[in-house]
Amino acid sequence: MRRPRKRGRIVTALVASVVVLGLFGWGALQLFHVFNGDDGDTKANAAPQSRPCVPAVSASPALKPMALPQPAGVTMNIYNATVRGGLAKSTADELAKRGFRVGKFGNASAPYDKKVTQSALIVAGPAAEAAAREAGTQVAGSAVKIDPTRKDKTIDLMIGSAFRSLATPADAAKARIVAANPPPAKPVCAASTPAAR
C-alpha cells in the first residue's frame, strides 16, 4: 500500500518540476524580449513603411549643368583670409602656371579677413558663375558664393583657414567634370512620424 503513495509522490514531483521549469523558461524568454526592445507587438515593431518624400520648403535649388571656361578664360583675384603670410602670392603664381589669369593678389578685405573657415571661398557675380565653378575645381573643399550686385566677370578667390594646397591637376580634372554636371540636389524631407500602435 505504501508503494502507490511513493509512486504518486514521484509523479507529482515530476509534474511540479516540469511546470516550474516551464515557468522559468517562459519568464526568461519574456525578459530576453524586454531587454532587446521587443514587446511582442509585431505591428509596432515592423519596419517603417516607405512614404513619399515631401521636400522641405527650405531645400536649396539644384545647380544646373553648364559649360565651364578654360583656365585662360578665367580672371581671378587671389586674397589671403588667413593669418599665414605669403599664401596669396604663392597660390597666384601656381594658378598662373596652370593657365589662369591673375588680376590682383594680397590680403582679404575686412568682411572676409580671418572669417573664411573652409579651404577657399570663391565670390563672383551671376555673369561669372561658370568661371567661379572652374576656379573651385582647383581647391578641394571650396565654396562658391554668387553676389547678385557684381556685374563684372572676374572672380575673387579667398583662401580660408582650412587651405593646405591646391588640388593636383588630376584631382582638378575630376572635379571639373562634377562642377560642369553637378548631381541633382537630394530632397530634404520632413521627419516621418512613427506608426501608431
Rank of each mutant, 00 (worst) to 15 (best):
R3L: 11
P4K: 03
R7I: 11
R7P: 01
R7N: 10
G8S: 15
R9F: 14
T12P: 01
T12W: 14
A13Q: 07
L14E: 05
L14T: 09
S17H: 01
S17C: 00
V19M: 01
G22S: 08
W26V: 15
L31Q: 13
L31N: 10
D38K: 10
D41R: 14
K43R: 13
N45H: 15
A46Q: 08
S50I: 03
S50N: 05
P52A: 05
P52Y: 02
P55W: 03
P55R: 03
V57M: 09
A62S: 09
A62F: 00
L63T: 09
P65D: 13
L68E: 04
Q70I: 00
Q70K: 08
G73Y: 00
T75L: 07
T75Y: 03
M76T: 06
N77L: 05
N77I: 05
Y79N: 04
G86E: 11
A88C: 07
D93K: 12
D93A: 15
E94C: 05
K97G: 02
F100N: 02
K104Y: 10
K104H: 10
F105I: 08
G106Q: 11
A108Q: 07
P111V: 00
Y112C: 01
K114D: 03
V123L: 09
E129D: 10
E129C: 04
A132Q: 02
A132R: 01
R133M: 02
E134D: 11
A140H: 07
D147A: 08
D147N: 13
D152N: 07
K153P: 02
K153W: 07
K153S: 13
T154S: 09
M158W: 11
I159R: 09
P169L: 02
A172Q: 06
K174M: 04
K174E: 06
R176F: 04
R176I: 01
I177G: 01
A180S: 08
P184G: 07
A185N: 12
P187L: 04
P187M: 03
V188L: 15
C189R: 06
A191D: 13
A191W: 08
T193H: 14
P194I: 06
A196T: 10
